[in-house]
Design a protein around this nucleic acid. Structure first.
Lengths: 208, 208
DNA sequence: GTCTATACCAGGATAGAC
DNA sequence: GTCTATCCTGGTATAGAC
């Protein structure tokens, strides 16, 4: 009925503006953090007027929350979206090596995701809900996947698969935070593959 | 000569003000981050006028740098200041367990240090020099200590002590970042001792 | 829904008295 | 060196025309 003809152009216009604004917000928040980002610059980056921003989002905080939630879903797919949970076939050592390699490669290559990590950790004190949402969403899935794989009796049959999964993920994530986000790669360099090799050996050898 | 009598009162006054300002700055920067902290609030927290702050520090950035450098040294001693590098005696499993336990306990108890971690990571994009200084200072020492211990032929005699040291530290630091800073303890709880046990077992078993 | 223009407030930094 | 008072800029948010 009338709901389809006239309002559509408005709604599509609105939706495209909304996504423009989110793009601009992403650019600014990831580059400057929450407090240092101004609504003027967001509006400018989105090529929209400031009033338009405020017509789509209640205030700066609302825009920030919406952005982070969007990024969470996008980035999770991009980074951990291994093609269809393929991590189940093959010998344990190779599977783990491949998984670690892919994770590190994807994250280290993706500078916006690193900015996102900085933002989530940096603002976690002032936006605890965002941090909780992130914890619930992104790493919980990876943890569950890995925990299940490590616990299979047909595979390594470890004593405490969840502890091992946390050590695996923790070592890799910390490597990124330390070497990349905190520039330790310039201060105490360490080859990516050496960490992965050491980690996989540790896990595989401990089960024999 | 004259340098000792008259100027001393001025200098002591000045020095105590300076430390007052740094205290106030610590309170504000750790609570609000860099951008959201105002010089007014720093001055108020230090119970000093704003002009006094500017007489001791060139600008906001200079104050922030000075603060972070001070915190770095303080916190490093408080957290990793194991009594006199005592981590060399005893059976490997116990030494590692004790070290991990002490580290986690100290960091998890110390909320200001967690705020400091948030700050360093969150601002590492905008203050790379601080991040580099931090990497050079704090974790490098711990890494060197642990690497040496793990490499001793009389002990575990691991293939790649540095990789193992990084896995050890990385697992623990990531545990803090994830469980505490990002509130995963409320979302995906996991007992501290279980991680430590799993980690130590992994390392000890792999060498046999 | 979108823009232009503006109200209103607060921040960083300084000048000048003591 | 320290304070009070102030300048200027730039922030968030909104009012009113289209």
């Amino acid at each position: 009925m009338e709901l389809t003809s006239a309002p559509i152009s408005e709604r599509q216009l609105s939706a495209s503006k909304r996504s423009d604004i989110l793009s601009g917000a992403m650019q600014e928040f990831l580059a400057n953090g929450y407090a240092a980002t101004t609504m003027d610059r967001v509006a400018a980056a989105a090529r929209v007027s400031k009033a338009t921003v405020y017509s789509h989002f209640q205030d700066k905080e609302g825009l920030f929350m919406a952005l982070v939630q969007q990024l969470q879903e996008q980035k999770f797919q991009a980074i951990f979206g291994l093609p269809e949970g393929q991590s189940l076939q093959g010998p344990p050592g190779e599977v783990l090596h491949h998984l670690a390699s892919t994770m590190l490669e994807n994250i280290i290559e993706d500078k916006p995701f690193q900015a996102f990590m900085r933002l989530i950790i940096g603002e976690s004190g002032r936006f605890p809900e965002l941090a909780r949402a992130f914890s619930h969403h992104t790493p919980r899935c990876l943890l569950a996947l890995l925990k299940e794989y490590l616990g299979e009796p047909s595979g390594l049959g470890l004593k405490d698969p969840e502890a091992t999964a946390r050590i695996f993920i923790g070592s890799l994530v910390h490597y990124v935070i330390f070497q990349e986000l905190l520039y330790a790669k310039e201060v105490v360099p360490f080859e990516r593959d050496r960490l992965i090799k050491g980690l996989v050996d540790l896990i595989v050898n401990s089960s024999t």
